[in-house]
Amino acid sequence: MATLEIRGLTVTVDVEDGTKEILRGVDLTVKSGETHAIMGPNGSGKSTLAYSIAGHPKYTVTGGTVTLDGEDVLAMKVDERARAGLFLAMQYPVEVPGVTVSNFLRTAKTAIDGQAPKLRHWVKDMKGAMEALRMDPTFAERNVNEGFSGGEKKRHEILQMELLKPKIAILDETDSGLDVDALRVVSEGVNRAKDSSEVGVLLITHYTRILRYIKPDFVHVFVDGKIVEEGGPELADRLEAEGYDRYLATQA
């Protein structure tokens, strides 16, 4: 049983003329087995929240706390956060030339588990997970994200989530750029991970369509750097019907 607890998180980013506050006091708790959707308009700071939890150096935490089972996540280095059980499926996965997917996955698995996986099981697990995500076996010998289509990148992110078995997974706009078929395949991957483990999921999205495949237990509306409304799945339906205008209007 794991708990990711975010309290009063404020984050700035350096801009040309100083710093800009992006997150303005975020409170959120994600527990094992739960699926939370964070929904909000573009530019509301959703991705900043994801990257700040993962520890991207571009973002400066100016206040608040992030803990995983009581441990101070903000004091950890990026790789320590991952080894503690946090996972970020990125919206724009990075190309790493010359590093094959198979080499990368095995290196990551070894780092997360603290020991190299047993070769026979590992190869079987990897092949199985790739097959379930309808990835061609030759994929393993391609360089990480190099020349991948948008759909391939997202499958590769979810492949990592399935193999690395995090405690808490943050999926940053995993649905963006996917056609319906790819969206279904990727969503099935997330649901497999949910079924086969206790992973808590924080799903960041602009649109509701991925929520047809991955059912959230909680929906949080994120506007201007903080959560402005919370509810159950029905809140997503309402957003689908009404959009974000209601929240934006109150700001004006």
């Binding site: 520890g55 150096p57 990026v78 790789d79 991952a82 990125m90 990075v94 997360i112 990592q160 690395l164």
Partner: peptide, 12 residues
């Protein structure tokens, strides 16, 4: 690239 790899638990 470094961030991506580290975000998968790989030490710097």
């Amino acid at each position: 690239q470094l961030f991506y790899l580290q975000a998968r638990g790989i030490p710097e």
